[in-house]
Design a protein around this nucleic acid. Structure first.
Lengths: 145, 145
DNA sequence: CAAATACCGGACAAAAATGTCCGGTAATAA
DNA sequence: TTATTACCGGACATTTTTGTCCGGTATTTG
């Protein structure tokens, strides 16, 4: 479904979000990688990209690390993260890989897939990092194991 | 969503099915690759795997090629093809890549993703190659461009 | 200011996916 | 029987994804 990079990116963002929301605390790479069970250097690369797109904030030096501002917690959605890392293909590409697939020139699965993809779009569009972080805070969801 | 191998495999199967159903005609690799716009040698590899799993039938020599028996047309589903090529992960794996993700130990997206994945499962499980080939035959769907 | 910390960025490495080539084998047709 | 056809299988090549390493830079603390 999603690439490894995207899985790590989402998990990292939720963890950072949870720490920012609960304790107003920045978290370092080592901490993140340990908490979401991901390779540290690779996760760093993914987060660097998200920083460039301003979906998460980073601070260098001692006491530095990654954090989500209250606005980022409230406004950054799963969709933004997925598109930033994997591109828009999963949200709009043809299931059978046809370069041109539309209602006028559909692949054999087009009309069956459409509602499913629409729901996926809706799911990613309507869930913010802050909301998902809340579930982790409440012990209702987990980021590893 | 699906790998390239899987996209080619599904498209090839539908094309073979359409030719088998409409004309009782075997189709060769060159023909298939041209009709579904895929790399010939790579498509061969994918089909070889499907032959081994007996989802499609092949015959060597002159007048040889690939065909789908009436029974294969009626019984082979998209799900069988997808699982044969990409494995079962997309139908059961966690969206965030957690090795253990369940209702008891859910990832933050678990309960939102479940209905979408269930629908995908249902879609793949209930559509046969024969049915999809029929759409191509009727000019209601296409396999390239 | 100096030292330590932690992200940044680019180069590099390994693994997986994608794609190609070619000799071998089975089947058909003349 | 012999030549031809077309799939089979393995080796090989390329590209993409995944993952690592290390020096550079910005920031904080003493």
């Amino acid at each position: 479904m999603f690439s490894k990079a995207c899985e790590y990116g989402i998990r990292a963002m939720i963890y950072i979000g949870q720490q920012s929301a609960d304790f107003g605390r920045r978290v370092g790479l080592k901490d993140i990688a340990a908490e979401i069970d991901s390779p540290e250097a690779f996760t760093a690369k993914v987060l660097q990209g998200l920083v460039r797109q301003q979906l998460v904030t980073s601070v260098k030096g001692p006491t530095g690390g990654f954090e989500l501002t209250p606005e980022q917690l409230r406004t950054v959605t799963l969709k933004q993260i997925v598109v930033a890392i994997d591109g828009p293909d999963i949200l709009q590409g043809c299931a059978l890989g046809l370069p041109q697939c539309s209602a006028k020139q559909p692949c054999p699965m087009h009309f069956q897939f459409l509602p499913i993809r629409d729901q996926l779009n809706e799911l990613l569009r309507t869930h913010t990092i802050g909301e998902l972080a809340g579930k982790v805070h409440d012990g209702l969801a987990f980021l590893k194991r």
